[in-house]
Nucleic acid binder design. Structure first.
Length: 260
DNA sequence: ATGCCGGGCGAAGCCCGA
């Protein structure tokens, strides 16, 4: 089962790209972020025509996440537990049956957190605390799971083109990375790093300053796997080529295969 | 790294992203 994650930066603006990529990549499950639209205007038909079931947790103009799956999407849950005041659409998960154990797949869009002296930074850290608590409860329930999405976290200096330039950014400061390590140290595996040890491989390149041709990127989209999912991990890679297409997202898909 | 690009909203120019 091939599971992919992609921050598309507006599903309406990116629909043609997403459909073209789906036809080539043929993922079984897709986690989308920054769809930037409400559930009612999400272009579900385009994906249903390709054989996908669709679950959406949308929001007008900002954020918004969705799941596409060729297998059934069961027990769909919208929103990250832990803060009833939080109305930003940044989390959806569902249980997906497979030939082996069912896998719970989450599509998450972790807050950016900049500027660091604004209320956005503590919101990011609190959101990460809630994600840690959610992962703990999934582990306690012994569900096999994949937490996929745009984490807005640069895990190490190997994951950024210029670590010094990003030293004080909310994606890379110590508090952010410490939360990410707390999450992964629960026993989760950064699937990409199982298959790729070499530094300076990215999932995001800014639209500005010629970041793509200069390969000034960041690795901020991640697939974190539970222990049982890690036991099934096959290949894992980034489809960087779509960044070179016309009208690209600034992020590219990351995917992994869970053996069956 | 300062939003220079790109999207939403809504019909110009501001908000937002990383």
């Amino acid at each position: 089962m091939k599971i992919a994650s992609w921050n598309v930066n507006s599903i309406k603006a990116r629909l043609a790209n997403v459909v073209d990529w789906l036809k080539q990549a043929e993922p079984d499950v897709v986690c989308l972020q920054e769809i930037k639209t409400v559930d009612e205007t999400f272009p579900s038909e385009a994906f249903e025509d390709l054989g996908y079931n669709v679950a959406v947790h949308g929001q007008k103009a900002y954020n918004g996440v969705a799941l596409l799956s060729k297998r059934p999407l069961e027990d769909v849950r919208r929103g990250l537990p832990g803060d009833r005041q939080d109305d930003q659409a940044r989390f959806i998960d569902a249980l997906i049956p497979t030939d082996r154990a069912p896998v719970r797949v989450a599509s998450l869009y972790l807050p950016n957190g900049n500027p660091r002296d604004s209320e956005k930074f503590p919101y990011k850290l609190k959101w990460m605390d809630r994600l840690i608590a959610h992962a703990k409860s999934l582990l306690e329930q012994e569900e096999e799971f994949v937490l996929a999405g745009d984490y807005n976290v640069i895990p190490t200096s190997d994951d950024v083109y210029d670590a010094k330039a990003w030293a004080d950014d909310a994606l890379f400061v110590y508090e952010t990375r410490a939360k990410f390590y707390t999450l992964s140290h629960l026993g989760l595996t950064d699937a990409f790093r199982v298959r790729h040890a070499e530094p300076h491989l990215y999932t995001f390149w800014d639209y500005q300053r010629g970041a793509w041709p200069k390969d000034h990127g960041l690795r901020i989209d991640h697939l974190l796997l539970s222990p049982q999912a890690t036991d099934r991990l096959g290949d894992c890679d980034v489809d960087a080529y779509v960044r070179g297409w016309q009208k690209p997202s600034d992020h590219v898909p990351i995917w992994c295969v869970l053996d069956e």
